[in-house]
Design a protein around this nucleic acid. Structure first.
Lengths: 361, 361
DNA sequence: CGTCGCGGTGGAAGCCCTTCCAGCTCTTTC
DNA sequence: GAAAGAGCTGGAAGGGCTTCCACCGCGACG
């Protein structure tokens, strides 16, 4: 260990063993924190390793251990804001620095399959995080056969662990909030009802009305028929809001919009019509993506960051104990008051992150 | 090859070789598209492989080939909108399905280093995409010594390939646009001038004024002193816009804001003051993140998707030909007219993606 | 009719680790 | 004083692939 680190560029475990006068087994044990290495030897090995800037080769390790220390995240790129936050949580849970994240952006829900093909190639990752998309049936088979643990986020399948959100409850609460603010004529601007979340949110809205003792009025419930992203787009929000505005005196005084992105469009429509938001229309969204803060939108928060974090945690647990019973976690969204409904503080941009609550399903 | 795929779960190249009555070398050649395999043998091997759902083990491959087929993306998570789009481009360039993307979110610019430590562990990826952050000096050393190709996106360093944006030119054009719309009293809302992009955009603004024959007036140039994200936040936009509003009759009629995020805050301030945007203030941003579309912000587009795509392409080129001369690409931002400046179509959310232009540095 | 070359092919060696078994040196125990 | 452990350690085998060298058969060539 006299010389400078002039060893050939790829420093291997053999180099370290030789320089430290130990066997390769011992070096390996040191790097795996195996207890049966004397303190003195351990220190010597570590010194030499640091000196040569040695790091075990991850692939060699993976091959020998039959473990990759990487997770695959299959994520829809089209719901931009949404997954971003979840990813944030995922990252922070991975911060141990031991596990890597492999990203697989899917640019269209129907294009998930091709990129899933690669999953069949065992040996790239230890587990899968699957976001917001329906799980194709043959993929389910494949994953189960390969015995790769998979955790669903913002999605549901009976055979896998999942973390999702109580759409019905959230929508009910949103409606209740509008009611509590004094609104009696509350409309809903829904996404394409072909999609489950859209239907659930509509259903929650109806429950909310019922609890408030308000009769359901189909004329102030507009839903998108757009197939694109199931209608969860700014464009549908803009267009449908225009129809509300055109109703004149028969229009609702408040609208529950089924997503923040749509609500952004709705807000633009209101502005374009020369109307103002808390005053002429109260608008509440759903999701609490970062955009909501930027435009002062009152909305129902989904604990996205937390969901990401817990999903990783769950994956680790399942890796450690494969036959854990499957659990389905379900979060209750939380009201975030900004200014689009007129209540709460004005609009000084808030910096705080509120606590989140959740419950078991 | 009579039996069902009842081979032990991990199917190896040996299994396939045996079942297809060939040597492992031949199987390997088939999977690597080596020319010297007879058509007949190739077909037979592929049939058997498909039958047993065989895929070469990526780690074993990586170990033997000394190549990982993965890129590392080091990305700031705090500039959410921004990197998202770039990532989109990266993904699409990776769509060949051969290369994987390893994600490394950095939640604070100062925290890049710890996560970079892992870079020293050779053998995890073949190349690095480094986004929007300053490259720490010791990291530069390390990367160069390890000879891992690195491409910078939205950042610059003389020793590496990079793709960035002409901040000066873009800011000049933004200013020119305001001038063309008839504005003569044009202010600027800048980020923290400690940061280079902030300074460049200010400098472009001044050039723009000069070209328009307007004298520079320091009283209507406000800059943030916030250290947080170098002042590129909604909060600074809100606050500084408030100061403009408070100027009464001496206030500018148009404001060039140094980023879309800040512009979002500025728009909120305008609204909160009971003023309206194209009418009382023309506001132009910079970046064209997705948010800009959602709030109808006129802005200077950076071709983010394209940058991501080209960065990947460049990395591949450099991998193929390591001693290519270093190139620094620089894009000229493009004006995207929405409604915050009052010109152009009203605000029906646009769906089109405009062409982008770019030039060599 | 030998020799060359070429399209194909088999498989050993090597990539860099982990793991397991054997073995070594001291203590401890009866 | 022998036997049995306890505490460490060395290194072969194995993980699944690529690559290279050796080799085989056969048509072409002189």
């Amino acid at each position: 260990m006299e010389a400078l680190p002039a060893l050939s560029v790829p420093v291997t475990i053999y180099d370290i063993a030789r320089e430290a006068n130990v066997g390769i087994g011992t070096v390996s044990r040191v790097f795996n924190n195996h207890p049966s290495v004397s303190e003195e030897t351990r220190r010597r090995v570590l010194t030499v390793a640091a000196h040569f800037n040695y790091h075990p080769h991850p692939y060699a390790r993976g091959l020998a251990r039959k473990r990759t220390n990487a997770f695959l995240a299959v994520i829809p790129f089209f719901t931009t804001f949404f997954f971003l936050e979840i990813l944030h949580g995922v990252q922070s849970a991975l911060a141990d620095g031991e596990t890597d994240l492999l990203l697989h952006g899917v640019s269209h829900p129907d294009h998930a399959e091709p990129s899933l093909r690669r999953v069949s190639s065992r040996g790239r990752f230890d587990g899968i995080l699957y976001f917001s998309m329906r799980l194709p049936d043959d993929f389910v088979q494949e994953v189960k056969q390969l015995k790769v643990p998979l955790v669903l986020v913002d999605a549901y399948h009976p055979d896998f662990d999942s973390f999702s959100v109580e759409n019905v409850v959230g929508a009910r609460q949103a409606t209740a909030h509008l009611h509590a603010l004094g609104h009696r004529r509350i409309g809903m601007l829904a996404a394409n009802l072909e999609s489950l979340p859209a239907r659930e949110r509509l259903s929650g809205y109806r429950q909310g009305l019922e609890e408030a003792g308000i009769a359901y009025d189909a004329s102030i419930v507009l839903s998108s028929t757009s197939p694109r992203l199931d209608g969860f787009t700014r464009e549908t929000g803009y267009e449908l809001m225009g129809r509300f505005i055109a109703m004149g005196s028969r229009r609702p005084s408040a609208v529950f919009v089924s997503s923040d992105v749509q609500a952004a469009g709705a807000l633009m429509a209101v502005q374009d019509a020369g109307l103002r938001c808390p005053e002429d229309f109260a608008i509440i969204g759903f999701d609490d993506i970062a955009l909501a803060g930027h435009i002062g939108l009152t909305t129902m928060r989904q604990p996205l960051v937390e969901m990401g974090r817990l999903a990783v945690q769950r994956l680790n647990e399942r890796l450690a104990t494969p036959d854990l019973p499957i659990t389905q976690h379900s979060f209750v969204p939380e009201l975030v008051v900004r200014r689009s409904c007129g209540s709460g503080s004005p609009s000084a941009p808030e910096l705080t992150t509120t606590q989140l609550t959740y419950s078991h399903a």
